[in-house]
Design a protein around this nucleic acid. Structure first.
Lengths: 107, 107
DNA sequence: CACTAACGTAAGTAGCAACTAACGTACGGA
DNA sequence: TCCGTACGTTAGTTGCTACTTACGTTAGTG
């Protein structure tokens, strides 16, 4: 599963698709219109993203609406955390300070 | 840079190399002995990891000692954070509680 | 200065991954 | 029911990527 996720987001066009879906749910055609490659190519990319659990589909009439899905990312985060703990610590540190600030303001 | 990092960790053998280096600094030969593939193949993998900034080298005599390096991961985390905020929120939530607990104990 | 150890590098190959063109399918409208 | 729309699917091609074999290089050792 981790392997599928990593292979999925290793491809630039697929990352671009994910960025588009970050804004809102989009149909396969709408997604394809943002790229230079043909529609079937995008369809295949969507299949890869779906297999990796990064994207979900919803059929509405003749359209297929795609949306972001976070499944499969937990393994990825676990992977990153397992040997770049100091990096995640930076994130943690930032969060810590944020929390302490908020905590003081609340009182 | 993000692209290089993602392509680097998308390969299973390279992820395995990173896992080995998590324990301690290792020579190219020691790393290669843990794999079925030939030594030149590992040498090429190490080159990819080095180009991505995930690994550093240190020459000692005729040996080359490799070690983990966290450069390049910040972009990756930023990428993940940009549209899987809810996932990182889980991490944040865990950190938040931890901080609040520690905070109370200190007082 | 040979000789070995521990590597990286170059060249060639096999397999996979991304792409296109052509085709098939399901849905809605006239 | 016929037609167009919006897709996915298949087959075939191209280009890249991981691999091997062969060779070059640098640092110690007798």
């Amino acid at each position: 599963m981790l392997d599928q996720v990593l292979r999925a987001i290793a491809e630039p066009n697929r990352r671009e698709i994910l960025k588009l879906l970050r804004e809102k749910e989009l149909s396969a055609g709408e997604i394809a219109s943002s790229f230079d490659v043909t529609r079937p190519a995008i369809s295949q990319h969507l299949q890869v993203l779906h297999a990796a659990g990064l994207v979900g589909v919803r059929r509405v009439g003749t359209k297929r609406l795609y949306h972001l899905k976070a499944e499969g990312t937990s393994e990825l985060l676990q992977f990153l955390n397992s040997f770049w703990e100091d990096r995640l610590d930076l994130l943690k540190k930032a969060v810590e300070e944020e929390v302490r600030r908020e905590d003081r303001n609340e009182r």
